[in-house]
């Protein structure tokens, strides 16, 4: 009788404490789980999308070049803010091997075309019609978000804020110089 009582007490206390710690651990693990991040340093996930002028383009088409993938939409104010800087960077460094891919989130051709004309964008615009590339592949949360990919096709840097020309320049230059 005595043995049992005491043993069951010990077992109960231990189980309860372990279960509580386990639950707390699970809760906070669970909460962190929601923020899945894309690992920097690894190879950039490849994708194929239709461009604004109706052709197909893949990230792998640009192997050997430095690629800036910019996720944007015309209704996003900071995206509009950084567009001139991106265009300027593209024009400055495209001859040295910089490619900019402007991935538009879920907008229709006509408004995007108007936007591109107004901002005089010359780099390729890719239409992510169901956000599959942005959200599922690149885990983009806020826009604008930009990824810098080196000549080997690895993700080097992520910027989830409106970039300035200087920022792009400072990031892109070493990448362009490397692998020459």
């Amino acid at each position: 009788m005595e043995k049992r009582t005491d043993l069951s007490k010990v077992v109960t206390v231990v189980i309860l404490l372990l279960a509580s710690v386990g639950i707390l651990w699970a809760v906070f693990n669970f909460q962190n789980d929601e923020v899945v991040k894309l690992e920097l340093g690894g190879p950039a996930p490849d994708f194929t999308l239709q461009t604004l002028d109706g052709k197909m383009a893949s990230l792998s088409d640009y192997k050997g070049k430095v690629v800036l993938v910019n996720f944007w939409a015309s209704w996003c104010q900071p995206c509009r803010e950084e567009m001139p800087a991106i265009e300027q960077a593209y024009e400055t460094y495209k001859d040295q091997g910089l490619v900019v891919l402007g991935v538009n989130l879920k907008e229709k051709t006509v408004p995007v075309q108007g936007f591109v004309d107004n901002y005089k964008l010359t780099f390729p615009i890719l239409m992510d019609t169901d956000n599959a590339v942005a959200i599922d592949l690149y885990k983009v949360k806020p826009i604008p978000t930009s990824f810098f990919i080196d000549r080997e096709g690895n993700l080097v840097q992520k910027a989830d804020f409106p970039m300035t020309f200087e920022y792009i320049e400072n990031t892109v230059k070493p990448l362009l110089d490397a692998g020459r």
């Binding site: 005595e2 043995k3 009582t5 005491d6």
Partner: peptide, 10 residues
């Protein structure tokens, strides 16, 4: 009080 007793199993 019973619980205070010592024994191996515990």
């Amino acid at each position: 009080r019973k619980g205070q007793g010592t024994d191996h199993e515990n």
